[in-house]
Amino acid sequence: MCHGRDRQSSTGAQGAGARAAAAAADVNRAAFGRTKAERARDAADRARVERVLDQARRDGEEG
C-alpha cells in the first residue's frame, strides 16, 4: 500500500511544495500559535516602537 507522503517525497516538485507548505505552517504557528501573554507582549513592543518612532519624526514629516 502506497501512502501519499511516500509518493510526494519521491518527486522533486511535490517535495519542494511540501517543504514550502511546512515553512508557511511554521510562520503561521509563530504568528498565531502564541499564548495570550505572548500576544500582549508583542502588541506592547509594537506600541513602544511606534511611540519611539513618532517622537523621532519632525513636524510635517510623514512615514
Results as ranks from 00 to 15, higher is better:
residue 3 H to F: 06
residue 26 D to T: 13
residue 46 R to I: 14
residue 5 R to Q: 00
residue 33 G to L: 05
residue 32 F to I: 09
residue 15 G to L: 07
residue 34 R to W: 04
residue 10 S to R: 14
residue 21 A to P: 06
residue 29 R to G: 10
residue 22 A to P: 02
residue 44 A to T: 02
residue 55 Q to W: 13
residue 23 A to C: 03
residue 51 R to P: 08
residue 63 G to Y: 06
residue 13 A to K: 05
residue 39 R to P: 01
residue 2 C to Y: 08
residue 19 R to Q: 13
residue 33 G to Y: 13
residue 52 V to K: 14
residue 22 A to Y: 00
residue 8 Q to W: 01
residue 32 F to R: 02
residue 32 F to V: 08
residue 23 A to F: 00
residue 37 A to V: 14
residue 60 G to S: 10
residue 51 R to Y: 06
residue 27 V to C: 08
residue 2 C to E: 10
residue 22 A to L: 01
residue 12 G to W: 03
residue 20 A to I: 04
residue 30 A to F: 04
residue 9 S to N: 05
residue 53 L to G: 10
residue 8 Q to P: 00
residue 5 R to F: 00
residue 63 G to I: 09
residue 3 H to T: 15
residue 51 R to K: 13
residue 40 A to L: 05
residue 19 R to G: 03
residue 34 R to D: 02
residue 26 D to P: 00
residue 16 A to D: 04
residue 49 V to H: 15
residue 55 Q to F: 15
residue 10 S to P: 07
residue 63 G to E: 14
residue 32 F to Q: 07
residue 56 A to H: 10
residue 61 E to G: 08
residue 32 F to M: 00
residue 12 G to E: 15
residue 8 Q to K: 01
residue 28 N to A: 09
residue 59 D to V: 15
residue 25 A to K: 05
residue 12 G to P: 05
residue 13 A to P: 04
residue 8 Q to C: 04
residue 57 R to Q: 01
residue 9 S to G: 08
residue 23 A to I: 02
residue 11 T to M: 12
residue 26 D to Q: 00
residue 11 T to G: 11
